[in-house]
Design a protein around this nucleic acid. Structure first.
Lengths: 186, 186
DNA sequence: CGGCGCATGTAACTTGTTACATGATTCC
DNA sequence: GGAATCATGTAACAAGTTACATGCGCCG
C-alpha cells in the first residue's frame, strides 16, 4: 500500500468517484500539500479493486463502459482507519527557489527578483483558492461531518502561504535595494 | 542535467568537497527545503566529472584512493549560472500529516493529537537549527560573500517553521477540546 | 460533422530510496 | 585491536512524470 492508495481511500470514504474526479479533487483541494498524476491514480484504482478495498459501482446503465465510478468497501474503510493511526512518516519539501536564492550571488539580482515575483503570484493564487474553499465550507452548515478537520487543513495552508508572501515582500525589498547587479565575475 | 547536479555545482562553487561532505551539508543547511541520498549524489558526481563540469583535486598524497575531493571547473560555473537564470520549475510539497488531518474524523482525536505533537517537536528542532545557523553566519563579519542571500533563505525557513508551530498550537487546542473520540462507526 | 472537454488507460522514462558491501581513519 | 565514524559505491527497488493512444458525448 502506497500513499496514493490512502489518498484514494480517503476521498472515496466521502463519496463514490471516478478516477478523473479524484485527480481533480486532489488538484484543487490538496493543491498546496499534495499531488498525484493519472499515471499513479489509475493503476492504484486497479490494484485497490483487486485487493477488495474498493469496488466499481454497477451503473444502471450497463452499456457505459467508460466512466467507472468507484466506492470504498467496508474492508477499505478499516484499512484507511488503520493507516490513520500509523505514525506519519514521509514529509518531503523541495523548493527549487530557495536553492536558487542560496546561490544567487552568482547572478544578477534582477534574475532572482523575477523568480520571486513569479513565486509570489503563484502563492497569492493559492491563498485565494484556499479562502474561496473556506467560505464555501462555512456556508454549508450541516456540519456533523469532517468540516472542523478540513478547516484545520485550510488554516494550515493559509498560514503557510501568508508566511511565503511575507517572505516575498521582504525579499523583493532586498533584491530591489543595493546594487542592481551582484555578479561575481562580470 | 538534473536538479541534484545543480545542488552539487552550487555547493562546489563555494569550496571543494567530497561526496560525503556534500551529503552532510545538504542534510544540515538545506534540511528544511531539500534532501538528497547517496544513491543520487555519487552517480551525479561521476557524471559531472565525465561532463567536465567538476574535477577531482589531485591530492599531494596520491595513495589515498578513498576520500576524493571535487572542485568545480570554469565550465561548471558557467553551467550553474545559466541554470540560475532559468525559470524555477518544480516545487513539490507533500505533507502526509495534512492528509491524515483531512480524514481524521474517521479516527479518535487522540490519534491525531499524537501526530501533531510529533510534528511540532520536529519543527521546533528545525527552527532551533535554523537560528543556530543564523547566529553563526552573523558572527562571521567578512560578508562580501553570499551571506545576505543565505540569510534570506534562513529567514524563509524561520517564517515557515513558525507558521507550522502556530498551526500546531491551535490544532492541539482543537484536538484537546470537544469530545475525546470522534469515530464515526465506534 | 468537427472540435472540445470529459474520461480512461498505459509504456517508457526519470527520479529517488534502501539496503547492502566495502574499506579507511581515528580514538580509546 | 576493537568500536565508531568517515567515506565511497551500487544494485534492486519504489515512486512519480510524461507523452501518447483511445474513445465517448455534447454543443454549435
Amino acid at each position: 500500500m502506497r500513499q496514493t492508495d490512502y489518498v484514494i481511500l480517503g476521498l472515496l470514504s466521502e463519496s463514490p468517484l471516478t478516477g478523473y474526479q479524484i485527480k481533480k479533487l486532489i488538484d484543487i483541494r490538496f493543491r498546496f500539500f499534495w499531488s498525484e498524476s493519472y499515471g499513479q491514480i489509475f493503476p492504484a484504482l486497479k490494484s485497490l479493486c483487486t485487493g477488495g478495498l474498493i469496488e466499481e459501482t454497477e451503473n444502471a446503465d450497463e452499456k457505459k463502459r467508460s466512466r467507472k465510478t468507484y466506492r470504498i468497501t467496508p474492508s477499505g474503510l478499516v484499512n484507511l482507519q488503520q493507516w490513520l493511526k500509523l505514525p506519519v512518516e514521509r514529509e518531503s519539501v523541495r523548493l527549487e527557489i530557495l536553492l536558487k536564492m542560496y546561490f544567487s550571488h552568482l547572478t544578477e539580482k534582477a534574475v532572482m527578483l523575477d523568480h520571486v515575483l513569479k513565486f509570489q503570484e503563484a502563492h497569492r493564487q493559492d491563498l485565494q483558492i484556499l479562502t474561496l474553499f473556506e467560505n464555501e465550507l462555512k456556508k454549508i452548515v450541516d456540519a456533523g461531518d469532517n468540516h472542523p478537520q478540513v478547516l484545520r487543513v485550510i488554516d494550515f495552508g493559509q498560514r503557510v502561504n501568508e508566511a511565503y508572501l511575507d517572505w516575498c515582500r521582504e525579499t523583493i525589498l532586498f533584491l530591489e535595494s543595493g546594487s542592481n547587479n551582484e555578479t561575481k565575475n562580470s
